[in-house]
Design a binder for these strands. Structure first.
Length: 577
RNA sequence: GACUUGUUAGCUCAGCUGGUAGAGCACAUCCCUUUUAAGGAUGGGGUCCUGGGUUCGAACCCCAGACAAGUCACCA
């Protein structure tokens, strides 16, 4: 079914046809020998003018100012924008001025991708500009793009701001909003910096299954799918922890993976159903060692992206310079909520939580209660990067019991700007303890905790062979990207954030009137339109308006066709499915 | 999932107390040989998110729904 075109789209399709009629291929196949970028010219032309006597550049046409026989256009390539000067008699040296008068002035539109050959000069007003000697259409654009204008003072006019359209059509967002592109460049700098750091330490980047028969390594609800040939359920991973640990068992001393994980849970400006974590496991290390690594690595990332350790995030300046503050979890609760929970039983804890106004329910164990109190009273106050250490054992079924403190595990999280950015343990490698912890999780699951972990027999078998003492880390790449790019929403650091499908179901569902029309036409495949209307209205209560509307809908859906017969009468034909 | 706000031209947005749908940019035609949010003149362009209802009459009021954003809940 052909979409209805807007006036401007029709104009562009007409232009496309005229271009073809002139013998110009609007989508040429041969390469265009680009040898310079806009950024390169802006940065280097002034001090090396001789190198820009003959250049070749390509980009998207973003604006044109025509003044009779001369004009200025702006093109945008991957590095930015640059002005192009086009003179009629220079790109059309002979008598035939078609290329300038028709093609350039009329048939090219904003959004088209063009190639320019020429030389660089500076205009009277002082703008570095390409003087075009040759102009080639490289791709015709058939849809008008939003025109965002910036004035002398840097004010943006007619900005392309609607978040829904920006996220659904990210390609448009990237074309017209340069700062958007910038955030994604920084995100890649972040992962490059982290990868370099880890490679320099000698750790190996690996890949582990995304489709898993048993999901594990975190507490979350999974996406479930099905493999047809094996005829078995599979889950999209919620974490890759248990697979990376199997590799430590297998004899690798340091492995890491940038992993897309999937969690079937609520969405918010901090949560997308698929997100990226970097998980790292290093043998013969502990969580104290891992804390030092995190500080060093994140400080380096900030330096690599910003050239300094301070990063502006909203109203705060966050400083990643080592060393970061450290609190134990009990210490943080005592510091921020003024309560010592370290000796409390589950019942006392529940009473305390209720007194503090934290919502509690039957499924919450002692660990979850502590976490709720921490989340409510401590986490939002931790703006500068801070390590929280020594979590209760109940909420950390994969972490090793604390070497000294009863009831705790060797675990830390780094909190920054009020949000967790990483989570790490001295990994539990005692297979008997691990089995008991899984069994406790199963109990929690029976109490109704939907996120309790399930038991992974193969993982237990692996660590029964013996996993060396290991430090493990998971670091949220999206959250860290948000901080490093001063983004308020996870959608601003994901190219294509998850959105609800926007298709209208209307397309396939007939209403009663339309059903009545179809039912009638079933016995009379083709009939004259007026006769059909009279016949249907004699048996059913369909107003003229609803009849018209019904016909229109049915035709759009391809259920019926309307055509003129030999006598010039309009006839309806029912199209068989 | 709850609440609040929003959805009008390709884009950004006005639209009063319910009375024929508006602007700027973009687009079209014309003028203009160093402009730059270029300028001047003229013109075309609408499923006012969808479906019901109230009304002589609905972009506007009422009901239901879709989508989005924000806040909360959930997400250790």
């Amino acid at each position: 079914m052909q979409r209805e075109l807007s006036e401007q789209e029709i104009v562009r399709r007409d232009a496309l046809k005229k271009i073809k009629d002139l013998g110009i291929n609007p989508y040429p196949a041969d390469l265009f020998p680009v040898d310079v970028t806009a950024k390169d010219i802006h940065e280097n032309y002034e001090r090396d003018k001789l190198s820009y006597k003959s250049i070749c550049i390509a980009g998207r046409l973003m604006g044109t100012r025509v003044m009779g026989k001369a004009s200025f256009s702006e093109i945008q390539d991957s590095t930015g924008r640059i002005q192009v000067y086009v003179n009629r008699d220079e790109i059309c040296p002979g008598d035939d001025k078609t290329l300038y008068n028709d093609v350039y002035k009329k048939l090219l539109d904003i959004g088209d991708i063009i190639g320019i050959k020429g030389y660089v000069f500076t205009t009277q007003v002082g703008e570095i500009t390409i003087h075009a000697t040759e102009l080639v259409l490289l791709t015709k654009s058939l849809r008008p793009i939003p025109i965002v204008k910036t004035d002398k003072d840097g004010n943006i006019h007619d900005g392309f701001n609607d978040p829904e359209t920006r996220y659904r059509q990210r390609y448009v967002d990237l074309i017209v909003n340069p700062h958007v592109k910038d955030a994604f460049i920084k995100r890649t700098q972040l992962t490059n910096s982290m990868r370099n750091y880890l490679n320099n330490k000698g750790y190996m980047e690996v890949e582990t299954p995304i489709l898993q028969p048993i999901y594990g390594g975190a507490a979350a609800r999974p996406f479930k799918t099905h493999h047809n040939t094996l005829d078995m359920p599979l889950y999209l991973r919620i974490a890759n922890e248990l697979y990376l640990k199997r590799l430590i068992v297998g004899g690798f001393d340091g492995v890491y993976e940038f992993a897309k994980d999937f969690r079937n849970e609520g969405m918010s400006r901090f949560h997308n159903p698929e997100f990226t974590q970097m998980e790292l496991y290093v043998a013969y290390k502990d969580y104290e060692w891992m804390m030092n690594l995190v500080e060093e690595m994140v400080e380096k990332i900030a330096m690599d992206i910003h050239g300094k350790t301070e990063v502006q995030v909203g109203e705060n300046v966050i400083n990643f310079q080592r060393p970061w503050k450290r609190f134990t979890m009990y210490g943080a609760i005592e510091h921020f909520a003024g309560i010592d929970v370290s000796e409390m039983t589950e019942a006392e804890m529940k009473a305390t939580a209720e007194k503090l106004g934290v919502e509690v329910d039957e499924t919450m164990g002692r660990g979850k209660l502590i976490d709720e109190i921490f989340g409510e009273f401590c986490e939002p106050k931790l703006i500068q990067p801070t390590f929280i250490t020594d979590y209760p054992v109940e909420m950390s079924p994969l972490a090793k019991k604390h070497r000294e403190k009863e009831g705790l595990v060797e675990r830390f999280e780094a909190i920054c700007n009020g949000k967790e950015i990483c989570n790490a343990f001295s990994e539990l490698n005692d297979p008997i303890d691990q089995r008991e912890r899984f069994e406790e999780q199963i109990e929690l699951g029976k109490r109704g905790d939907e996120e309790a972990m399930v038991l992974d027999e193969d993982f237990l078998r692996a660590i029964e062979y013996g996993m060396p003492p290991t430090a493990g880390l998971g670091i949220g790449i999206d959250r860290l990207s948000m901080i490093m790019t001063n983004s308020n929403s996870i959608q601003d650091v994901l190219f294509f954030p998850q959105m609800r499908a926007q298709k209208k179901e209307k397309a396939l569902v007939l209403n009663d009137d339309e059903k009545a029309i179809v039912a009638y036409l079933k016995s009379n495949k083709t009939m004259e339109i007026g006769a059909a209307k009279d016949a249907i209205q004699s048996t059913t209560e369909i107003s003229n308006k609803k009849w018209d509307k019904g016909l229109k809908t049915l035709r759009e859906m391809g259920v019926i066709s309307i055509a003129k017969n030999a006598e010039g009468q309009a006839e309806i034909t029912l199209i068989e499915a």
